[in-house]
Design a protein around this nucleic acid. Structure first.
Length: 130
RNA sequence: AGAGCUGGUCAGGCGGUCGCUGAUUGGCAACGUUAGAUGCUUGCGUCUAUGUUGCUGGUUGGAGGAAAGUCCGGGCUCCAUAGGGCAGGACGCCAGGUAACGCCUGGGAGGUGCGAGCCUACGGAAAGUGCAGCAGAAAGGAAACCGCCUGAAAAACUUCGGUGCUUCAGGUAAGGGUGAAAAGGUGCGGUAAGAGCGCACCGCGCGGCUGGUAACAGGCGUGGCGAUGGUAAACCCCGUCCGGAGCAAGACCAAAUAGGAGCCUAUUGCCGCUGCCCGCGGCGGGCUCGGGUAGGUUGCUAGAGGCAGUCGGCGACGGCUGUCCCAGAUGAAUGAUCGUUCAAGACAGAACCCGGCUUAUCGACCAGCUCUCAUA
């Protein structure tokens, strides 16, 4: 059974954390209404950061709703057991989606991200063998 | 029963599971301070109290009526103790409420609706300047286009009394026409025709009186009204109010790295306090002391506070008594999911805090009142 908690240690807290992800994003997963960036960390667990630009999602109520959905999805998914620093950026139109749609979109994003990360780990392993 | 007006209240409920955040209270671990007790190898242990951090359990609090727009008014903080003048801005019937207001309450005036009600940027146009398209003869100490009336000349006609085309000189603001507006209105008298020329009523100006704190209302007298047209969300005048910046205010602890703090002294220059002037503060020099960006802590929620009762007031509101504690985040919490139920859930998310205004909004309910219809 996975640990479903989401405490402060599992979130990105400072501007330094964020700029590290923006400057050297190892993995990218893109969709029409959302962009996910991530880098490896050495902590043994994943951390989440959110960027909800007021320009893209105008109403505060909608921004809160989307953030809650993303956090809930991150919390209940296996992605939390990886070792990644992840930043999710909202794009225009995300506030038009229903909760269920947002959740399924994010699940596919997490799957893609995990696949890329494990693939990268494998190729690094192979490179080391050669 | 239907249609409507005013004021107010609520903003899905219940249960299970998994989360976030504040407070509080246990347990465990690490580190530290001081105090007490105690062991002896007399400078090190042990225990208890206590502080910080981490993990973990219990209890409990956790968005709004608009949290919004940031349009006003305050508190609070720093700048000088918030000062003087000019400039600038806001407001503008009267009285009251308030910390204050551009808000609210009550009253007056005008407009509007059958009515309950609703609406009003509602000071001054005899201080000055400006503005008014088109139409119209004339638009502000106005004006004669048509018309009406009088007089003179006079074609033509004539029953020889006159009727008078046309022209000229005058009178006339009653009628037509233009316009948003034509200089008091309506009626009667009057007149050559007319005219406040005279009279009545209404309106307006001026002066007393009565009621009212006042705005104002009523009534009396008086002026014939060629006094004083409109426009001040045109400039303006008058009155009242307004210093600036904002919680990223400000205070404290503090990595890297050389930009500081206190005291004394000086007032040429520069910077800041307001756009400008006065005025004030800082930078400058000397002496003494080491410092304050990232980050953290604080400010940060007990308040012009809510609720109930009571007293004063028409009311806004105020006094007194009792009672309650009701978000405090900071990459930013207040949620997710399942079940159930109903009248089927709108607009929408705190960011220093209050009082207002404005805008958005599915609906539900309560109180008072108005109009219409029916029954009796």
């Amino acid at each position: 059974m996975a640990d479903y908690a989401l405490t402060k240690s599992r979130r990105l807290l400072t501007p330094l954390d964020y700029s590290a992800v923006f400057d050297g994003a190892d993995y990218k997963v893109s969709d029409r209404s959302v962009l996910v960036l991530a880098i490896n960390n050495e902590l043994g667990y994943s951390r989440l950061g959110l960027v909800m630009a007021k320009k893209n999602i105008r109403l505060a109520v909608q921004r809160n709703r989307i953030k809650r959905q993303i956090r809930e999805s991150f919390r209940t998914n296996d992605i939390g057991r990886g070792s990644l620093d992840i930043v999710v950026l909202a794009r225009r139109g995300l506030d038009q989606m229903e909760n269920e749609a947002v959740r399924s979109l994010l699940t596919t994003c997490w799957d893609k991200l995990l696949a890329k990360a494990s693939h990268a780990a494998h190729s690094q392993l192979n490179a080391e063998k050669v």
